[in-house]
């Protein structure tokens, strides 16, 4: 285990540097990229604080749609497994299984939750709208 600062505290320091030093003292391209970098760091802080909840929720939703599977114990393995399961879901949609009826309804509800979770990380203002 690392000593403090925690991941979040260190990222907060990087974001603060980008906001209060880089952006204040630069113009043009460097200023613009400074802003983009600050936003990226803030996005990472939100992602790290929500990733376990969001992965678990997406996994549960896919269990409901595709059948129950045991959840991998590590985040890295979880990402790979989620990608594989989303490929399965994509195939089902391409084959017409979600064209209508109850399965479509469930797929859309699941995706609405999953995309909303993505926006909570990537665009919280938009997520707050709906």
């Amino acid at each position: 285990m690392q000593d403090r600062p925690t991941i979040d505290e260190l990222l907060e320091a990087v974001a603060g540097y980008l906001r209060d030093d880089v952006m204040v003292n630069t113009t043009g391209r460097t200023n613009f990229h400074g802003r983009v970098a600050m936003n990226a760091v803030e996005m990472l802080r939100r992602e790290i604080s929500t990733i376990e909840d969001h992965y678990a929720r997406e996994w549960d939703g896919l269990d409901h749609l595709l059948g129950v599977e045991p959840m991998p114990p590590y985040l890295a393995a979880m990402r790979e497994s989620l990608l594989a399961r989303n490929r399965s879901l994509s195939t089902r949609i391409r084959e017409g299984d979600a064209d209508s009826g109850d399965f479509r309804h469930q797929v859309v509800n699941h995706l609405r939750k999953v995309i909303h979770d993505k926006l909570v990380v990537s665009n919280p203002a938009l997520a707050a709208e709906g």
């Binding site: 990229h33 995706l111 995309i115 990537s122």
Partner: peptide, 28 residues
């Protein structure tokens, strides 16, 4: 290899959100 290009990948979700809204509006 700029932070700008990399960050655009995180904007895909905004289009997914809008697509879900439009699909719903179109009557699914």
């Amino acid at each position: 290899k700029t932070v700008e290009m990399a960050s655009i990948g995180r904007r895909t979700a905004e289009t997914e959100w809008e697509l879900l809204r439009l699909l719903e509006q179109a009557g699914i």
